[in-house]
Design a protein around this nucleic acid. Structure first.
Length: 264
DNA sequence: AAGCTCAGCAACCGCCCTCCT
DNA sequence: AAGGAGGGCGGTTGCTGAGCT
């Protein structure tokens, strides 16, 4: 017997999300947290499939997303991780705070893939397409191919961060430098552990945003929808990551407190 | 100005994995 | 142990806008 569809196909809306739908979904998630996705559309008053809601939330509405193009160093990191992890976009995305797997996947297919092909590198194997091809000097900062030092070192847990630092082909890369200086992040890279995004957010400097928000006289979420949408356009880092997680957890605590009190 | 082509990206589809009964 | 349900992930599609003829 085949599986049931994830949602009732009848009456389920498809296609681009409207602002109204986004608002409903954001309101619901921020007030109730991420619970059973199957139930979300009903509870949030949306004529959407639960899966579609989850996708919309994780790829677009999540307030901790950093939107915009990848920097040179981030792109380099993606190439590196892809050489090691393959098309495991979720795992790659886990190493790039604020990026989604979909975003990285799209960027890979539209930009990086072409870039590598242009440079004579097979984007799948990371091997030269033609072994005799000589690389122009401008591409000398590209990562060694699979099997070369850096990739081997990536597999070698014992060499730890110093290997990467010593073999860094991307000296000007501030991102890599900052990552290399972070032990927990480096360990996760070596050990192929999927870091929870939440853990990554903790790396960012703490900001006392709840208090700041109050001090700044900011309105509750319901009254600040436009402001939050603006954050998506400018990038979360422009505002300080933790303000959102704290707002969210605060909301959750309030909600849970209400529920717990209700159950007592 | 209109039509065509192509790149970029949001969203969907379907398989797979995990958890629960 | 087996099967169902739900969620996660990667591949693919299709829409949109920019650039070109």
């Amino acid at each position: 017997m085949g599986r049931q569809p994830c949602c009732d196909k009848l009456g389920v809306k498809k296609g681009p999300w409207t602002g109204e739908e986004d608002k409903k979904l954001m309101n619901f998630i921020l007030n109730n947290g991420q619970c059973c996705w199957r139930a979300v559309p009903k509870l949030a008053g949306l004529k959407r499939c639960g899966k579609s809601c989850r996708l919309r939330w994780t790829n677009y509405l999540r307030p901790d997303l950093k939107r915009g193009l990848l920097t040179e160093s981030e792109e380099q990191l993606v190439i590196d991780l892809h050489a090691r992890l393959g098309n495991r976009w979720f795992k790659i995305a886990a190493r790039l705070p604020g990026m989604t797997d979909n975003e990285i996947k799209n960027h890979w297919n539209t930009h990086i893939k072409k870039k590598l092909l242009k440079m004579g590198i097979d984007p799948v194997t990371h091997e030269p397409l033609n072994k005799h091809v000589s690389f122009p000097e401008e591409n000398m900062h590209m990562p060694p191919k699979a099997g070369n030092d850096v990739v081997l070192n990536l597999e070698d847990n014992s060499n730890s961060s110093t290997s990467l630092a010593e073999n860094s082909y991307c000296g000007e890369s501030l991102l890599l430098d900052s990552i290399c200086s972070d032990k927990s992040l480096i360990n996760s890279l070596w050990l192929d552990e999927t870091l929870l995004n939440d853990a990554l957010w903790d790396i960012a400097p703490k900001v006392d945003n709840i208090n700041n928000n109050i001090d700044m006289g900011l309105q509750p979420w319901e009254d600040n929808y436009a402001w939050l949408l603006d954050c998506q356009d400018f990038g979360i880092h422009d505002f300080g990551i933790n303000c959102f997680t704290e707002i969210e957890s605060n909301e959750l605590h309030l909600t849970m407190g209400v529920e717990e009190n209700g159950h007592q």
